[in-house]
Design a protein around this nucleic acid. Sequence first.
DNA 1: CATAACCTTTACGTAAACGGCAAGGTTTGG
DNA 2: CCAAACCTTGCCGTTTACGTAAAGGTTATG
Lengths: 181, 181
Amino acid sequence: MTSMTTGQGRPDAPAPAEPDRSAEAERLLRIQEVAAETGLTPRSIRYYEEVGLLRPTARSVGDYRLYDASDLERLQAIKALRDDAGLSLAEIGQILEDEEARRRAKAALKAIDDPAERAAIFRERLASVERLEASLRPKLDRLQALVADVEARKGRLRDHVAAAEAELQRGPGVERGKARS
Amino acid sequence: MTSMTTGQGRPDAPAPAEPDRSAEAERLLRIQEVAAETGLTPRSIRYYEEVGLLRPTARSVGDYRLYDASDLERLQAIKALRDDAGLSLAEIGQILEDEEARRRAKAALKAIDDPAERAAIFRERLASVERLEASLRPKLDRLQALVADVEARKGRLRDHVAAAEAELQRGPGVERGKARS
DNA sequence: CATAACCTTTACGTAAACGGCAAGGTTTGG
DNA sequence: CCAAACCTTGCCGTTTACGTAAAGGTTATG
């Protein structure tokens, strides 16, 4: 679920002659099923399409949107970036484009033999994930600090609760000593 | 900067007889200075007041908003919760109220001697920070997973870059072995 | 083949979080 | 005391990310 490698690149599949064969029965889902599975609403999914975050793999004869597994992944990635990282759809769009550029570069590598060119492609891919990291890391760090702070306070309060309950057990009448916080 | 203990509770100070004395020259800032210091806009600060997130410590004769250090802290906390944790102003409001309730409970403790009552107050405070933690922890965990994922990819790409550059150094003509990316 | 359940596009509505402007009062340096 | 810089309270506008309803095709099922 953390794969984040959610390709929107299907440059001509081997033509869907007969629907569903080749082992794993590639069922296509309609928008409501996708919504149920991702926890998004159909409206949101259509909206994401509207702003260019994903196109459904296919359309039915009657123009129903049809999604495959990779679309699912992509939507889950979008949701994660939105909810967990709190990014705007615009930022998410950038990230996904970057992601695709990396995928294309990776694919292109197979056809390239010149070592210098290969090195250049690797460096570019590296720079791209570093940009991605740069967009997430600060938030992570600060959130981590925030939570650590809360944790510390929780620990102190646990101690205080324990102490207070111990005092309760020992019976009252005992004057309490200084205790901060 | 991670204190997060930003009190909006000033129950009657010893009356500001002469402005500025008592060691640390408690200067009050006007909205623009506060904006500069917090990275917020004056508009946002007024808006936060409008929705009840903070009231300035004082007003000048001419009704200018005047903020003190604790207001600064509170605004920084708001900003952290908004930007890092990605919470809505409504959620932030809840959290700050909780925070204040804890502060009041803490203050009340000093006057209470009954151990049972003290224990109860501690338990309530504990429950409160646990709610706060519950609102932050899931995001942190998932963000962490996301970043770890990105990190891993970065590591792999670093290796590939290194390998490619090594190959460059060794000179061309060498057929490259299989390498999964 | 009828019909319920689902889908389509189009379009208007909304909540959140401000941005920006107008009209007018306040502070402060010179 | 006066002008520049800053502030106030409206109040309308905007962007983002959808919600919701309308009008009308599509699919699955008995």
